[in-house]
């Protein structure tokens, strides 16, 4: 009941936007190359479901593989640099540098290294997601209070126990921040990477070729798939976050 009430306003606003859009396009006679009407996009969407789903499956593979590897290595390196100041001085600036690399430069290189198929897209996503996770997780590991750390010391707890029982749990809200940021980053990364070489399937490939054919309604249909995928990806991670960090001040049930 409450969920329905929360969903109603965005649905009403979304429907209103679509209606106005449709009306303006029809009344003003906007050419479909500039802006197709929502109804035209919808029609194209329905007729292209096999193509769109093949594109989706191709791209999501790179997204998920890159997301998992990028976040996992980011977290792992954060734990390593937290342990060793030497690694921190060496690796943190390097990670910073990697994150500053322009994706349109990285993508073609990755295609040369890892081939046309999804592994090269995953590699681009790894490059994009690694640093946000590294920085956030490193900050999270430092976030445990001095009193909480002293407490572990009074129990004679070792490094591993303090990490498992105190520092990783208190880093969790930071880690989830990075996981959320990285959902959209990874989707953008994979789609843009497909502009630079791919087997003839994938959301980025579809957008770049259909723009060339001036079938803008197909571009829009792909954008719809990407937008829904990105939102759902984010929502799933946010849901897991609520479950995992229910104790955090921002979620506490009264």
């Amino acid at each position: 009941m409450k969920a329905a009430r929360d969903l109603l306003p965005p649905l009403v606003f979304g429907a209103a936007v679509l209606l106005i859009w449709e009306g303006v396009v029809r009344l003003a006679g906007v050419p479909s190359v500039i802006l197709p009407a929502p109804s035209a996009i919808g029609e194209r969407f329905v007729h292209s479901i096999p193509t769109l789903s093949a594109d989706f499956l191709q791209t999501i593979r790179g997204v998920l593989a890159g997301y998992l590897i990028g976040n996992a290595t980011g977290l792992l390196v954060a734990i390593l640099i937290d342990r060793s100041p030497f690694l921190q001085r060496g690796l943190l600036p390097l990670g910073n540098l990697v994150s500053a690399l322009p994706i349109i430069g990285v993508a073609p290189i990755m295609v040369m290294w890892f081939g046309f198929d999804w592994p090269s897209k995953a590699a681009v996503v790894v490059v994009m997601t690694f640093f946000p996770m590294l920085v956030n997780a490193a900050a999270g590991l430092r976030s445990a209070g001095s009193m909480e750390r002293d407490l572990m010391r009074t129990y004679g707890a070792g490094y591993g126990q303090t990490l498992r029982k105190l520092r990783l749990p208190s880093a969790l809200p930071f880690v989830f921040n990075a996981l959320k940021i990285n959902t959209t980053l990874s989707l953008i990364g994979a789609i843009v990477a497909e502009f630079f070489g791919t087997p003839t399937v994938g959301m980025g490939f579809r957008i770049s070729t259909e723009v060339g054919h001036l079938s803008i309604d197909m571009v829009w249909a792909t954008i719809v798939v990407a937008a829904v995928t990105g939102s759902l990806f984010y929502a799933i991670v946010a849901l897991v976050e609520r479950r995992a960090t229910f104790w955090h001040a921002s979620y506490r049930a009264k």
Binding site: G145, M147, E148, D150, L151, T154, K165, L166, P169, S170, L172, T245, W247, H248
Partner: peptide, 13 residues
């Protein structure tokens, strides 16, 4: 020894 701090320092999770 057991140590009690100025604040409870209980882990919220």
């Amino acid at each position: 020894y057991g140590y009690v701090f100025q604040a409870p320092a209980l882990y919220p999770w």
